[in-house]
């Protein structure tokens, strides 16, 4: 038996999508999203969500990587393999700067991407929106708003009518 997962409304261009998002936000929906082939400038305001938490991942991973890299070199040069090289002190820390820097960078990059994937719940190879044939244009030239049936304000007919009233060129209930 197929189940209605939610409603999908298509809009003509970024401007219409932007204004429709403001109205969905003001109508008080929570489980909804907008979809576009590219990021739309300022849409986070129109959709009313908070600033990304990705930078925290970057900061924590970056500092951990740099500190870990520095500690590794100190431990190797003073404890694991205390070898005097060209008369330098064992803890010749200025020489450790390049590797500390590089390890800080690689960990920041991994943390940033890992954090982005985690916050976005990706990879996610199944999503109910993929049942819609029309949704394939979301990665080409289609602009969509989707409202999930889990939303507290959801009601099949009412939500569809609401989306149509926003100027959507096409509204469908996605089943699968």
């Amino acid at each position: 038996m197929s189940k209605v997962h939610g409603a999908l409304a298509e809009f003509a261009n970024p401007a219409e999508l932007y204004h429709a998002c403001e109205k969905v936000r003001d109508a008080g929906y929570n489980d909804w999203d907008s979809h576009s082939p590219f990021p739309i400038h300022g849409i986070e305001k129109a959709m009313g969500f908070a600033w990304s938490r990705v930078p925290w991942f970057a900061l924590v991973f970056g500092l951990t990587g740099a500190a870990g890299g520095f500690a590794l070199q100190v431990w190797i040069s003073t404890v694991a393999s205390p070898l005097v090289i060209s008369g330098k002190p064992l803890l010749s820390w200025p020489a450790y700067v390049p590797v500390t820097f590089e390890l800080g960078i690689i960990c920041t990059a991994i943390g940033t991407l890992g954090g982005m994937c985690l916050l976005n719940r990706l990879p996610a190879f199944y999503h109910w929106l993929f049942h819609s044939k029309r949704f394939e244009s979301a990665t080409d030239d289609g602009f969509f708003i989707s409202i999930e049936s889990t939303d507290s304000k959801w009601d099949s007919a009412g939500t569809s009518a609401f989306l149509e009233s926003l100027g959507a060129s096409h509204v469908e209930l996605v089943e699968g």
Partner: peptide, 17 residues
């Protein structure tokens, strides 16, 4: 593609990343 679906909530984190 990791299941990318052009979500603007995703785009936001993506752009910051």
């Amino acid at each position: 593609a990791l299941g990318w679906r052009g979500s603007n909530r995703h785009w936001h984190n993506y752009e910051v990343a």
